[in-house]
Design a protein around this nucleic acid. Structure first.
Length: 750
DNA sequence: GAGTTTGAAACT
DNA sequence: CAGTTTCAAACTC
C-alpha cells in the first residue's frame, strides 16, 4: 500500500522537518487539550508559532461542533457550516458568476463557517482548530472524487491543495519554518512572529514564493509577470497574540490573472492594507485573473471578479472567513465539490485572512459581494484586513496534469505561458531583498530535475523585495520569472492530524477512522520548492520547518539539524547510490526527504516517476523506525552545546574524529548514549582540538582566498573600466591575470 | 579515479 | 537484541 496507516499520524514526529522543534519546548503553550472540535482553546494564548499538531480541517466528515454561533449569510445554495474549535470562524462563500452573494461573517465569537454556493456538497463541517493549521484542498471536479481545498497552516506550514476543474490538483506546501521567521530581525518578540508566505507565478513562468515575515503587518509578495498570466502570492502572517492581544493575521489570497480581462485582482492586491498590505505587481499588460474560490469558474468576462478567502482566527473567537466570489458559467465543470472548500485553480483569487483580534467579527463585514466586475474583494473579519496573500492559480491552460504511473498523487504542473515557448527552466531569478524572509522564499520547481529544497541563495529564481523592517512595513515581492514550473502532488486533505510533519514528504496517510475515504499526503515544502540546485540549499525535511534562528537556518536543515554554518549555501551533495535505488536510508537524499536531483545515482526511484515505490519505501522505513525521518541531531535547550545525536554513534576505529562518525560529522560531541570505542570526540580531547584548529585554519584560508579573489577581480575590473576600451577588447589575458593574482595570496598564512 | 575503510542501515 | 550483511560515504593513494 502506498498509504501509510493512520497510526502513523501519531507517530509523525513534530519535527520531521524541523529539528529545532525541540527548542519550542520551552514554552509549552497552552496546547489545546484535544483537537476535538468542540473544545475551544484560547487562541490568544496559543501562539501561532507553536507547533501544534492540530490541524484544521475544513469540512471534515466528522460531526460538526460549535455551530452555535456560526453565521451564514451567504446566499449560495450550498452552504455548509463548519464547526471551528476555539471559536474560530470559518466562512466560505462562493458566488456564482450570475450573482455574487456577499458573505456575511458571523459576529459571534464562536466559530462559524459559511460555505457559499461555489462549494457544493459541503455537507461536512468545517473544523478549525485553535492551532493555526489551515488546509485547503480542492478535489478534482471529475465528480467522483470529492473536491477539497485545504489550507494548512501549522505554525509554520501552509498547505494549499487544490484541484483544478480538470481535476488537476494543486498543492502548495509551506514548511513550518516559514511561519517562524527569524525573530532576530523581526519584532524581536519571539512570540509574536508573523510569517508570510508568498507564492508568485508570473508570466509563462509561474513563480512560487514563500516568505516568512516576522512583523505582523507585512506585505506579501507581489509578483510581476511580464505576461501577467499567473500570479500567486501567499502570505501568512502570524502574530502570536500575547497579553497584548496582538492580532494574528493570516491571509491567503490566491489570485489568478485572467489573460485578457482580469484586472481587478490587481487592484485589490495593490490596495494597501493596514497594517499589512499586499502588493502584487503584475505587468500592466496582463491583469491578474479573476479569483475563483470554490469551484466557481470564472468566465472570461468575470475577470474582475475575485474570490477571496479570509481566515482570521481571533484570539478567543478566532474567525475564519473564506469568501469566494467567482463568476462561473453555469456550465463550468467541476461545480460539484464535495469538499468544504473548493478553490478553482483557474482564475481564482483566494484570500485567506487570519487575524487574531479581540474584536469580534461582525456579520456582514465581509464585503465580498461576488460581483464579477469587482476587483478582488477582501473580507475584513475582526477588523480591517491586514494581510493579503495573493496566489494566482494557474489557469487551466497553465496547469498541466501529470500522471505518475502507479502514483496515488495527482500532480499538477503549473506552467506559465512563455512568450516564446516552453519554459522549463526557472529562468529569471527573483531577488529577495529581505534575507530574513528567506525561509519563505519563493521556490521554483523544475519538472525534470527536481530537487526539493529551499534555495539558500536568495534571489536566484524569484526576486523578492521586502522592506527590511519586518515590523509593520509591508513587504513587496516582485518576481519576474520567465519559466517556472511547479509540480505538486495533491490529495484531498480531509483532515490533518497532528504530527504530520514527521512524515517524509510524499507520504500518504490513510484516512483516519471515521474520516471517510480521504487520506492526505504530506507535502514537504520541497515539493513546492524546486529550484535549480545551484541556487538553493536543500532543505532537510524536518529542519526547514524548525524555527530557524537565523536566516541561514531557514534554508536547510542539515542533516541533523546542524546549525547554520553548514546551511549557508551548500546544496545537498548528490548521492551516488547504485543498489538501493535511493529508497533506503543509505541514500542521503531519501533520508532527508528529498527527491534525487542531479545526483549520480543509478536506477534511482527517488523521484516522481516512482512515487508509489517511494511511498512504500518510506513506509517501510517508518515501520522499522518510526522516527527514521526525524533529525538525528536534536537540539538541546541551551543551544548547540546540548545538541546530541539521538542514537549515538557506534564508531570503533575512527575515534569519532572522522566524518564516518555521525556525531563528528554533525560537529557535536559524543555523548553517553554513544557506543563508540576509543572515542576522542569529547570536549577535552586534544586530538579533537587539534582537528578543530586545523579545520578552522582551513576554513579561514578558504575565506581569505575567496576574499582575495573577489578583491582582485574587482580591482581588475575597475582597472579595465578605467583603461580604454582597447584594453578590454584585448582582454584575452584578463582571466589569466586574475588567476595569477588569485593564486598570489599566501594560503599558508594560517 | 580506483580502491579501501568505515559505520549506519538493513537483514537474519 | 545481537550478529551479519549491505550499502554508500569518507577516506587514502
Amino acid at each position: 500500500m502506498d498509504v501509510v496507516s493512520p497510526d502513523l499520524n501519531s507517530i509523525l514526529p513534530d519535527e520531521i522537518m524541523d529539528t529545532e522543534a525541540i527548542a519550542m519546548e520551552e514554552d509549552p503553550p497552552n496546547e489545546p487539550p484535544a483537537p476535538s472540535v468542540q473544545s475551544e482553546p484560547e487562541p490568544a494564548q496559543v501562539p501561532m508559532e507553536i507547533e501544534v499538531s492540530e490541524i484544521v480541517s475544513l469540512c471534515p466528515a466528522t460531526a460538526p461542533t460549535q455551530k452555535t454561533q456560526a453565521l451564514t449569510t451567504s446566499t449560495t445554495t450550498d452552504s455548509t457550516l463548519c464547526s471551528i474549535s476555539s471559536g474560530t470562524q470559518l466562512i466560505v462563500t462562493s458566488a456564482s458568476s450570475a450573482g455574487l452573494k456577499p458573505v456575511a461573517s458571523s459576529t459571534t465569537q464562536s466559530s462559524s463557517a459559511v460555505v457559499g454556493q461555489g462549494l457544493p456538497k459541503l455537507s461536512a463541517p468545517l473544523t478549525l482548530p485553535a492551532n493555526h493549521q489551515l488546509i485547503l484542498s480542492k478535489v478534482a471536479a471529475d465528480g467522483k472524487s470529492p473536491g477539497t481545498t485545504v489550507l494548512k497552516q501549522e505554525g509554520q506550514k501552509l498547505l494549499v491543495t487544490g484541484l483544478s476543474k480538470s481535476g488537476q490538483p494543486l498543492v502548495l506546501a509551506l514548511p513550518h519554518t516559514w511561519s517562524k521567521p527569524a525573530t532576530s530581525q523581526g519584532t524581536g518578540d519571539g512570540k509574536a512572529q508573523p510569517t508570510q508566505f508568498k507564492v508568485v507565478t508570473t508570466g509563462a513562468k509561474p513563480v512560487i514564493g514563500v516568505q516568512a515575515v516576522t512583523s505582523t503587518s507585512q506585505l506579501l509578495g507581489s509578483s510581476t509577470s511580464l505576461q501577467a498570466q499567473q500570479l500567486k502570492t501567499v502570505q501568512i502572517t502570524k502574530k502570536t497574540p500575547v497579553s497584548t492581544a496582538g492580532p494574528m493575521i493570516t491571509k491567503l489570497i490566491i489570485t489568478k490573472a485572467l489573460n485578457s480581462k482580469g484586472l481587478t485582482g490587481q487592484a485589490a492586491v495593490q490596495a494597501p492594507m493596514v497594517p499589512g498590505r499586499v502588493l502584487s505587481q503584475t505587468t500592466p499588460l496582463t491583469p491578474p485573473r479573476s479569483i475563483a474560490v470554490g469551484e466557481a469558474v470564472s468566465t472570461p468576462q468575470n475577470i474582475s471578479s475575485s474570490s477571496k478567502v479570509a481566515i482570521s482566527p481571533l484570539k478567543s473567537p478566532s474567525k475564519l472567513t473564506v469568501v469566494s466570489v467567482a463568476s462561473q458559467p453555469p456550465n463550468s465543470p467541476q461545480k460539484s465539490m464535495t469538499l468544504p472548500i473548493n478553490v478553482a485553480l483557474g482564475q481564482q483569487i483566494l484570500t485567506v485572512q487570519q487575524t487574531s483580534t479581540t474584536s469580534p467579527v461582525k456579520a456582514g463585514t465581509s464585503q465580498s459581494t461576488a460581483q464579477a466586475v469587482k476587483p478582488v474583494q477582501t473580507v475584513a473579519i475582526g477588523g480591517t484586513p491586514q494581510f493579503k496573500t495573493i496566489i494566482p492559480l494557474a489557469t487551466p491552460p497553465n496547469v498541466q496534469q501529470i500522471q505518475v504511473p502507479g502514483s496515488r498523487f495527482h500532480y499538477v504542473r503549473l506552467v506559465t505561458a512563455t512568450t516564446g515557448g516552453s519554459t522549463q527552466h526557472t529562468a529569471s531569478p527573483s531577488t529577495n531583498t529581505n534575507p530574513s524572509i528567506q525561509p519563505g522564499k519563493p521556490m521554483m520547481m523544475n519538472t525534470a530535475a527536481v530537487r526539493m529544497s529551499v534555495p539558500i541563495v536568495p534571489a536566484q529564481t524569484v526576486k523578492q523585495v521586502v522592506p527590511k523592517p519586518m515590523t509593520s512595513a509591508a513587504q513587496v515581492v516582485t518576481t519576474s520569472q520567465t519559466q517556472q514550473r511547479l509540480i505538486m502532488p495533491a490529495t484531498p486533505l480531509p483532515q490533518i492530524q497532528p504530527n504530520l510533519t514527521n512524515l517524509p514528504p510524499g507520504t500518504v496517510l490513510a484516512p483516519a477512522p471515521g474520516a471517510g475515504n480521504m487520506g492526505y499526503a504530506v507535502l514537504p515544502a520541497q515539493y513546492v520548492t524546486q529550484i535549480p540546485q545551484s541556487a538553493f540549499v536543500t532543505l532537510a525535511s524536518s529542519s526547514g520547518f524548525s524555527a530557524p534562528t537565523s536566516i541561514q537556518t531557514q534554508a536547510r536543515l542539515p542533516l541533523n539539524g546542524l546549525s547554520a554554518p553548514d546551511t549557508t549555501s551548500r546544496p545537498r551533495k548528490p548521492c551516488n547510490c547504485t543498489k538501493s535505488q535511493c529508497l533506503k536510508l543509505y541514500c542521503d537524499c531519501f533520508a532527508n526527504g528529498e527527491f534525487c536531483n542531479n545526483c549520480n545515482c543509478v536506477n534511482c526511484f527517488n523521484n516522481l516517476d516512482h512515487e508509489s515505490e517511494r511511498l512504500k519505501a518510506i513506509k517501510a522505513c517508518l515501520d522499522r523506525n518510526p522516527v527514521a525521518f526525524k533529525p538525528k541531531i536534536g537540539k538541546g535547550k541551551e543551544g548547540e552545546s546540548d545538541r546530541r545525536h539521538s542514537k549515538g554513534c557506534n564508531c570503533k576505529k575512527s575515534g569519532c574524529l572522522k566524518n564516518y562518525c555521525e556525531c563528528y560529522e554533525a560537529k557535536i560531541m559524543c555523548s553517553s548514549i554513544c557506543k563508540c570505542v576509543g572515542c576522542k570526540n569529547f570536549e577535552e580531547s586534544p586530538e579533537r582540538k587539534t582537528l578543530m584548529h586545523l579545520a578552522d585554519a582551513a576554513e579561514v584560508r578558504v575565506q581569505q582566498q575567496t576574499a582575495a579573489k573577489t578583491k582582485l577581480s574587482s580591482q581588475i575590473s575597475d582597472l579595465l573600466t578605467r583603461t580604454t576600451p582597447a584594453i578590454t577588447s584585448g582582454g584575452g589575458n584578463t582571466e589569466s591575470l586574475i588567476n595569477l593574482h588569485t593564486k598570489a595570496p599566501p594560503t599558508g598564512s594560517l
